[in-house]
Structure formats: structure tokens, C-alpha cells
């Protein structure tokens, strides 16, 4: 099985640090994801947004990595949001019950608006 590694770009929007995720979220993504999250934390925003638009594969190890990010966000009293999940990944967030703890937005604009009003 050919593995496409995860690339993450971090950028700052008003009040939100956005992580643009591109590729596969699996066990190999741990280093890239944690490094990008640390970079986002350094931007000192109250909200970090995971943009899943470029994600085309998530396995159960990848979902566990996202749980790890949620724990880090909770520890530092930050909100972790998600946007641009395909219908399939929305279902996975529901099955794994990540969506109980993480607000999911259809697009980046609505997530940024939510972050700015709360």
C-alpha cells in the first residue's frame, strides 16, 4: 500500500491558528501533526482550527492522534475545531464520537466566524 505522508501548513487568521492538513493521517503523521500543533500554539490564539480539505485517508491510529491534540488543547484551555470534512469523515467523527468534543464546520469561514464570536 503506497503511503502518502501528511504535510501540514500553519497560518494565522484573525483569532485562529489554522492547520491545513494534506495527505494521510496515520501513524506516520504523528511527528508532522505534533510539530504543526506546537507551531500553532506558539501563535497564542485561543482557537486552533484543523482544516481537513486536503486529507484523503484517515485510519484509527490517525484518529487517536487527533484525540491527543484534543487533550493538549484542553490542557492549555484552547478550543480545537475542525472544518472541511467530507461526508465520510463527518461520519467517522460521529462513530468515534470525536464530534461530541470537537465542533465541526462545513467550511473555514464559518469556523472562523464561530471562533471570533465565542
Amino acid at each position: 500500500m503506497a503511503v502518502r505522508h501528511l504535510n501540514v501548513e500553519v497560518r494565522l487568521e484573525p483569532g485562529v491558528a489554522v492547520l491545513d492538513l494534506m495527505g494521510e493521517i496515520n501513524g506516520f503523521a504523528e511527528e508532522a501533526l505534533n510539530a504543526a500543533y506546537a507551531e500553532a500554539e506558539a501563535k497564542e490564539t485561543n482557537t486552533i482550527l484543523l482544516n481537513f480539505e486536503g486529507v484523503d485517508y484517515i485510519n484509527s491510529t490517525g484518529i487517536a492522534l487527533i484525540v491527543g491534540l484534543l487533550a493538549r488543547a484542553r490542557a492549555s484551555h484552547r478550543r480545537l475545531l475542525a472544518c472541511n470534512l467530507s461526508e465520510h469523515y463527518v461520519e467517522i467523527f460521529n462513530i468515534t464520537r470525536l464530534s461530541d468534543f470537537m465542533s465541526v464546520f462545513p467550511d473555514e469561514e464559518s469556523a472562523v466566524v464561530e471562533a471570533s464570536v465565542s
Partner: peptide, 10 residues
């Protein structure tokens, strides 16, 4: 998606 067959349904 390539992972669709690997996940349980909700």
C-alpha cells in the same frame, strides 16, 4: 475515500 471500506458505519 480509500479508507471507506475499513471503517464501521455509524
Amino acid at each position: 475515500p480509500r479508507d471507506a471500506a475499513y471503517w464501521a458505519h455509524y
